[in-house]
Every structure is written in structure tokens, then in C-alpha cells.
């Protein structure tokens, strides 16, 4: 059986796309990937997704999106796509099967980046973490650091004060990318201190984290800073490695979507006709759940239109 649409990814972009395609009676399969639910599953309170006046927990928001999609009959499989090929239809290979579809929506999102140090790899799960909401609990009464200067870093630092008596935010510059409200909240918290212009050179410890080696970005001076936990919040990288050579990516790995030819052209089409993309895998700029959801809707409507004009002639 050939699906009308296969959606790769299960964050707000993927689920919104699936909501629209399944409501349009298109036979829809969602392949939810190695991190089902995406980045929302590792967040806490979401206060900037409209419709929830008291806020909503990120994991709950995406669980509710999934339930809404299931109500309209989309199939969801917890599989990771390894390859896509185009013949008369698209063939999508996962670790456990092959599926065919007339159109594909790429909504694979982005994942937390690590520093790439061998010492960091060695100490993952032994004090090095990229998910404060998952692992903060294990740092009750301990002294921890958060690496990064964006909203994620501020959110993680604030969250960690529930457990850790002292949280240090270490940032390589002295300016912060974090939004004013998040930065302000962290700065007002007396349990959070800031170390700026410091680059993490090494994570110290044998069987568990004991500190970080920092280099001053201006003077080059090295210091060893004791800490028992290192939480990384240094940004995200798009999950597009498996698409290399199949569709055009920009130099940083984001999926390149076609610029509008006219205001009525599809806005989410990739370099391969019939393949659309939405959410953080195309978006290095906004990276918000609400934007991903909006783009997921656009990709679904573009796929639906594509099927109306191409679907029947090509594949009858």
C-alpha cells in the first residue's frame, strides 16, 4: 500500500502536518524517529504556545497533539528513517521496514548539540547531560553548571535551582542570545551565578564529573572550576544527516526550501518535487513550537495541493 503522505518526525511540525493531512482524508503515516515528541519532551512549562492561559508542560502539549492526530486516523510508528529514494513513488526505509508514499513531509527537527570533547562523551550520564528536566533530580544538593547563553540555558538554570543549591551559567561571550524575560528571571535568582567569556576546554573527572576546565576568551587564562554536573545548552543541530544527497541542505544542514515564486506558490517545497519540509529542520531563526506547528500546517496544505495536481496522473 502506498501512503498519500509520510511525515518524518513527531514534534509540533510533524503532528500539525498529520492533523491537516488526516483531516483532509489523505492516507497518512507518521514515522516518529529516535526522539518521539521531539524537543518539547525535554522542556518544562511552555508559556508561549497560545491557548493555554495557565501554561502547559511541554511533554503534555506534544502528547495531546499526538492524541489529536490519532483521532483522525493517522498511523504513527516509532521508527527511525535511514534512507529515502524516489522512483515512481518515494520509498522510505527505516531500521525495521520499507514504506512507500506519494509525498513526504520532513519534520525531523533538531537535537541538542554537545561540545564534541572526548571527556564529555566519557562522562555522559555520569554528570554530563543535555536535559535538565530529565536529570536535574539526580543533582539534589549538588553544585552544577549550565553551558550556554540562550533561552534553553536560562530555562535549564532556573529549573535546576529546584535541586541544586548553586547553579553557574558558563557562556563563551558576554552577550546573551536569551530573551529578556528568561535572562532577567535567571539573573534575579540569587542561586544562579554567571561566568562569561569562558570557553569549556575539558570536562574533568574519571568516573563522574568533578569540574570543568575553562579558558578565558579574552586573556587565554585557564582555570579549573569545580562542579558535579554539566548541563549543555549550546544550541541545536538539524536532524538531516540521512537526507544528504537526496534533497538540498544549506551549509549548516538545514533543509533548503524553495523561495516563493509568487505569493500563491507553495512555501515549503524542497529541491525534490513532492517533498516538503517544516519546523526546526528548516528553521535556524525562530525555533519555536508555534512556528513549527504553523509550518507543519503549510507543508500539509502544500502536499495536499501537490497530490491534487500530480498525485493521480503520476501514480494511477
Amino acid at each position: 500500500m502506498t501512503y498519500d503522505v509520510i511525515i518524518i518526525g513527531s514534534g509540533p511540525a510533524g503532528y500539525t502536518a498529520a492533523l491537516y493531512t488526516s483531516r483532509a482524508f489523505l492516507k497518512t503515516l507518521v514515522l516518529s524517529g529516535f526522539e518521539p515528541g521531539g524537543q518539547l519532551t525535554t522542556t518544562t512549562e511552555v508559556d508561549n504556545y497560545p491557548g493555554f492561559p495557565k501554561g502547559i508542560m511541554g511533554p503534555q502539549l506534544v502528547t495531546d497533539m499526538k492524541a489529536q492526530v490519532e483521532r483522525f486516523g493517522a498511523e504513527i510508528k516509532q521508527e527511525v528513517v535511514t534512507e529515502i529514494n524516489k522512483e515512481s513513488v518515494f520509498t522510505i526505509t527505516t531500521q525495521s521496514g520499507k514504506y512507500t508514499a506519494k509525498t513526504v513531509i520532513v519534520a525531523t527537527g533538531a537535537s541538542a548539540m554537545y561540545l564534541g570533547l572526548p571527556s564529555e562523551e566519557k562522562l555522559k550520564g555520569k554528570g554530563v547531560s543535555a536535559c535538565a528536566t530529565c536529570d536535574g533530580f539526580f543533582f539534589r544538593g549538588k553544585v552544577v553548571t549550565v553551558i550556554g547563553g540562550g533561552d534553553t540555558a536560562m530555562e535549564e538554570a532556573t529549573f535546576l535551582t529546584k535541586f541544586a543549591p548553586k547553579v553557574t551559567v558558563i557562556h563563551r561571550r558576554d552577550e546573551f542570545r536569551a530573551s529578556a524575560i528568561m535572562l532577567d528571571r535567571a539573573k534575579k535568582d540569587e542561586r544562579i551565578t554567571f561566568l562569561t567569556n569562558k570557553i569549556v576546554e575539558e570536562i574533568l573527572g574519571e568516573t563522574e564529573v568533578t569540574g570543568v576546565r575553562l579558558k578565558d576568551a579574552k586573556t587565554g587564562e585557564m582555570i579549573d572550576y569545580p562542579t558535579q554536573g554539566v548541563f549543555l545548552a549550546i544550541g541545536h543541530k538539524p536532524n538531516t544527516d540521512f537526507l544528504k544527497g537526496f534533497i538540498d541542505l544549506d551549509p549548516k544542514g538545514y533543509v533548503a526550501v524553495k523561495r516563493a515564486e509568487t505569493p500563491l506558490s507553495p512555501q515549503t517545497e524542497t529541491s525534490v518535487p513532492g517533498v516538503f519540509a517544516a519546523g526546526d529542520c528548516v528553521d535556524p531563526r525562530y525555533r519555536q513550537a508555534i512556528v513549527a506547528a504553523g509550518q507543519g500546517c503549510m507543508a500539509a496544505m502544500d502536499a495536499e495541493k501537490y497530490l491534487e495536481t500530480h498525485g493521480t496522473e503520476d501514480h494511477a
Binding site: E35, P36, G37, L40, T41, T42, T43, G58, P59, T63, Q78, C131, T133, C134, F137
Partner: peptide, 11 residues
């Protein structure tokens, strides 16, 4: 309270 654990459970 661990989001990824909710994903791991069904697996």
C-alpha cells in the same frame, strides 16, 4: 516527570 522516559516506556 521525565519526557524521554514516556517515550522509552512503550519501547
Amino acid at each position: 516527570w521525565c519526557g524521554p522516559c514516556q517515550v522509552q516506556g512503550p519501547i
